[in-house]
Design a protein around this nucleic acid. Structure first.
Lengths: 345, 345
DNA sequence: TAAATATCCGCAATCGATTGCAGATTAAAA
DNA sequence: TTTTAATCTGCAATCGATTGCGGATATTTA
């Protein structure tokens, strides 16, 4: 059973006593082949359980109908949703997906990208690892004729197609909402500032404060608080300040916000009356904590579909004069829940 | 920049005035090539930014170093974790992953498998769609020399490698635990019985009742309650019985258990004192509901690693006489949390 | 009926890397 | 110095599908 030889177009050709090229044309439904032979070939192919060897086909045609995806972790909600979206759109176009995870490591990211180049993927879709600084591996992919699309965590300086969230706007809205709810001292848990998304979220926070003529207090801005544990640590530190915050915007993730909630709960601090909490991402669990957590929905599945469709559109128009690096920005949505409803609805 | 011609071994050969075969040997680190030329080739390859064309290599060698994965949904926690595990183990061995989702549809599952056959993947890893009944597409893959590994949702009659959970045992333990906590009327939310995993979970439930000399009450067994909504519906029905259950085992999923919890909460029924709840899968959220939900951990990432390593082991031994279809059973772990602690710890 | 066109079909090259085989060169043994 | 063995290298075939080109046949037009 194992590694039995598969039937090729030559087997079909031999059986029907015609040339392999005719078989090929029949199978690819070319119109340079007689309708009768076409039928015959198709019938014989089915009988012999013929499966086209995509490798050979791709080698000859110089394209693989494959999209490579590189994300930090496959099993993080946001990324698995984006991938699901990409898969859905790609499947309809007959494209395959090769998935890699960078584990947030630049070194592994580079290896993944190189593998994908070797695999002759037509397109690489990537969301950068947190410690990604040098981007020559991406330039390299482009130099090898691979379309590159960045999403969410993008390197601004690279001129590629991009699909991003309007992080600054979303952040601005979230903080404005908290201000309107009457919170006066809003702390920020920020992510690694080498990533643009976290810089943008910080900018939105700062803008909101300034717009509402509120002071920016450095002691309320905590760096690198982007996991549940780091969020919890940051919260302990914040709540033990002589003049603690009355709200915390966990701009990094909902996990971080969860850490905040747990610490508040342990310290007996009432949410949302004594402490407002806002997360980021709209993870499934934010709906079922008590109180439920206000957060920001990124439309991750839709984002994935957008990425894939952007590629397909680009392919259709690629013969046109000049391709302008396109950036699609998806507007995230603030989901107001209990954790910030100080003054009710 | 686009679709520029890539450097091949012929380019290197030409530049160095040697044969392409020597370049190939140098690049694959064969010992049938002079150390000096090897160095030279490697150097030149780097200079010309050479990338091996894996398609051509695979075509020639007749293997693709690629594993195809088919799951119902990529973005379901359990599956994305398994995939992450597979990726981790595969990456170390230099294997790539092609990911497909069947969307729980047999028809799409068939297409996915066929695509993977065309792609000449070396191995297909699959967890069946819920409506998967006919399995000729899988047999087909095997007939084409592809190693097949089923995990979690497996077709028993197909003689393949399998990695499964001991669902019956886990189920048995969960129900026994509830009995020991003093629950007397334990309902079962069961999943589609065409899937073995759900049959096994039901069997474990029944065994536990029998072993503890408790009656099996048909009115407490609800079919097809495997989503949050269906779980909620089932719960409403159960709790409105003249003689309602005092515990519900949502054997299908934690989502189903969440539906139970929400209905109980709305109806003002105290958990765990008036109603015990147990889920299945140890989704992240089960830890943070109030009360937290007792559930069963399936070690999903580990399961993925096990699947991949099973394949690699099999490859190493494949020349040995006869390969016995191996089945690896992973023992899940009951995670006791508040929702079933009627009599405390 | 002859000429012009359309429709099919097959030959052979091609995509890029690998590998068995044979010849060439060098090193070791007699 | 000659024979034998070891080490390199190149030639050419191969993996399976695709495609430009030219020839053969069928169809249409003059």
């Amino acid at each position: 059973m194992k590694s039995k030889k598969r039937t090729t177009i030559y087997d079909i050709a031999e059986k029907l006593n015609i040339a392999a090229s005719s078989v090929s044309r029949a199978l690819s439904n070319s119109n340079h082949v007689n309708e009768a032979t076409k039928k015959l070939v198709l019938k014989t192919a089915a009988e012999l359980n013929y499966k086209r060897n995509t490798l050979a086909s791709n080698l000859r045609k110089g394209k693989s109908k494959t999209i490579g995806v590189v994300v930090p972790f496959i099993n993080q909600n946001f990324f698995s949703n984006v991938i699901a979206g990409i898969e859905e759109a790609s499947y309809q176009k007959g494209y395959n997906l090769i998935i890699c995870q960078s584990n947030e490591l630049q070194s592994k990211e580079v290896k993944c990208v190189n593998t994908l180049i070797n695999q002759h993927v037509d397109c690489i879709v990537i969301s950068l690892a947190v410690d990604s600084s040098d981007h020559s591996h991406l330039q390299n992919a482009m130099d090898n004729g691979i379309e590159l699309i960045q999403f969410d965590r993008v390197a601004d300086e690279l001129e590629t197609l991009k699909v991003i969230n309007d992080n600054e706007q979303a952040s601005f809205e979230a903080v404005s909402h908290m201000i309107e709810q009457g919170y006066k001292r809003i702390a920020l848990l920020e992510g690694p500032q080498n990533l643009q998304i976290f810089r943008q979220r910080k900018a939105g926070y700062l803008n909101a404060l300034i717009r509402h003529e509120m002071p920016v207090l450095d002691e309320l801005i905590i760096e690198n608080a982007w996991t549940k544990e780091l969020g919890a640590n940051a919260t302990r530190k914040l709540l033990n300040l002589p003049n603690p915050p009355d709200a915390i915007f966990a701009s990094t993730s909902d996990f971080s916000a969860l850490g905040v909630l747990e610490v508040a709960s342990v310290m007996g601090i009432k949410v949302p009356s004594a402490l407002g909490i806002c997360g980021y991402s709209n993870e499934a669990f934010t709906e079922i904590t008590s109180p439920s957590i206000t957060t920001i929905d990124q439309f991750s599945v839709y984002m994935g579909k957008t990425v894939a469709n952007l590629y397909f559109q680009e392919m259709e128009n690629k013969d046109e004069t000049e391709v302008v690096p396109k950036i699609i920005s998806i507007k995230p949505k603030l989901i107001v829940r209990s954790s910030t409803q100080k003054r009710g609805v």
